[in-house]
Design a protein around this nucleic acid. Structure first.
Lengths: 128, 128
DNA sequence: ATACTAATGATACAAAGTATCAATAAGGAG
DNA sequence: CTCCTTATTGATACTTTGTATCATTAGTAT
């Protein structure tokens, strides 16, 4: 398969690089200003292709829904990309040291909570 | 306003407590088995009410879309609940110490990446 | 027992993202 | 430069997660 360097791809990539942590919609809107006939699906496809090539990373949301937790305090989770299950991680005081050290670098950002998640494959799914 | 202790509420709460980090859909399906006439909206409403009361916590996804990042390595982000923007946090070696210390506690879980996010209000939004 | 109204269930809707498929346009071969 | 192959596009329909609306139902205080 020979990949083709289309106008749309170049434009989406260029617009993506000009933005900070954009969502797909943000990229889409900006691209539309420059190339009104572009399809929504194309923007999603180009971004996903960039991810597969490893040039781009998705932030949060390997999941596509909210999960609810009984434990009403900040603690890290492990999310399995195979089964979609979330598990608690036992955290030691390195985590709280890490949490409090981050507060120093927030530049006026008022933290309300943390969301620390390890993404990977759980032992159940590895043994299948 | 007088809150009412309905059958549906009791059931949703009970089912939620019986599950580990369930999504709303998981709770809905389980509740439906026991109470087939329950509406989907009711399950969402009860879970949201539990969150407001502080009994339940939502895991990840204050956002409702995927964000993309140029920086192709694991680093923490700050997510503002007012404007929805994501910012990078400068991380020091405490973060990597924290990351590597977590590896010890993973019990066979193979980590592929981390997603560390501080949720709060950015300085721009505070000054409005 | 009655009245008030919080909560429900049905329905429609919105937003994010994917699947499908005919039409288009890269780019290599001649 | 022209033709041909097929990767990519754009339109459309669809799926999933979640919310808004509103008439009906059922807790609860009196």
């Amino acid at each position: 398969m020979v990949t083709r360097n289309t106008q749309q791809q170049k434009l989406v990539e260029q617009v993506f690089l000009s933005l900070n942590h954009p969502s797909a919609q943000e990229v889409y809107k900006k691209v539309q200003e420059l190339y009104p006939t572009i399809g929504r699906a194309t923007v999603y496809r180009v971004l996903n292709r960039l991810c597969q090539k490893g040039q781009v990373m998705q932030i949060n949301r390997e999941e596509n829904c909210v999960y609810f937790d009984k434990n009403n305090f900040d603690h890290p989770h492990a999310y399995c990309i195979k089964c979609g299950k979330i598990r608690d991680i036992c955290f030691d005081n390195t985590f709280s040291k890490c949490s409090s050290s981050l507060n120093k670098n927030l530049n006026g950002f008022t933290p309300l909570g943390v969301d620390f998640k390890i993404v990977g494959i759980c032992s159940d799914c590895q043994n299948k």
